[in-house]
Design a protein around this nucleic acid. Structure first.
Lengths: 100, 100
DNA sequence: CCAACGTATGAACAGTTGTTCATATGTACA
DNA sequence: TGTACATATGAACAACTGTTCATACGTTGG
């Protein structure tokens, strides 16, 4: 239950990457389904350039993985582990709403 | 499972506050046990001033609550909900180690 | 009252971050 | 090859953040 300093830093870095609204939105956007960059940009009303910048950080943090198919690049959650962490967080937000 | 824009912002703000190593360390430090500011500062080798600054942000995000007792102020996780969220995150870090 | 202690606050500074714009890379198709 | 499209990258800039230092506040005991 207690983390080492290194583990604390590691977790903080992950949370830091997720702790920006647009970036979190992008991550949620391609959590369950593979999504192309322009697709994400359209859904969140962001420029493709900005989405690409954020995806680079998300990829750097191993939260997301990319797959090229023709001109498009499809992004999705890196693995089941990431999906699970975020599903937990999302579930907790839902609980907050219920409690008021 | 899908979050509204407002919920996304709310969650991002929470993650943003937790996404700094010293602050996360402080939060973990007073997760299970009530801890005085100087106590936390000593354990993490930080100045009481810095710890106080960070605790103000943690309190602002309702992640932590304060209780004054004489000259000291004891901080602890705001509620069971916060403890649960962080316990989940900590557990996932443990899994990462196991997987390699 | 005063002094000592624990905590909080505010100003200031360097370093970082999110965003935009311009431009480059990569791919497909005529 | 050349044009069009999707994505990526880099520079630049304002806004923000973590930290330090000095100082203030609140509490206890003389």
């Amino acid at each position: 239950m207690r983390l080492s300093p290194d583990q604390t830093i590691e977790l903080a870095e992950m949370l830091h990457i997720m702790g920006e609204a647009n970036r979190l939105g992008i991550l949620l956007c391609c959590l369950e389904t593979e999504r192309a960059v322009s697709d994400i940009a359209a859904e969140l009303s962001l420029t493709p350039s900005l989405v690409s910048h954020h995806l680079r950080l998300l990829r750097g943090a191993r939260l997301v993985r990319a797959r090229r198919q023709g001109k498009q690049v499809f992004y999705s959650a890196a693995d089941a582990h990431v999906r699970s962490v975020i599903a937990d967080l999302v579930a907790h937000v839902g609980e907050d709403e219920a409690e008021g």
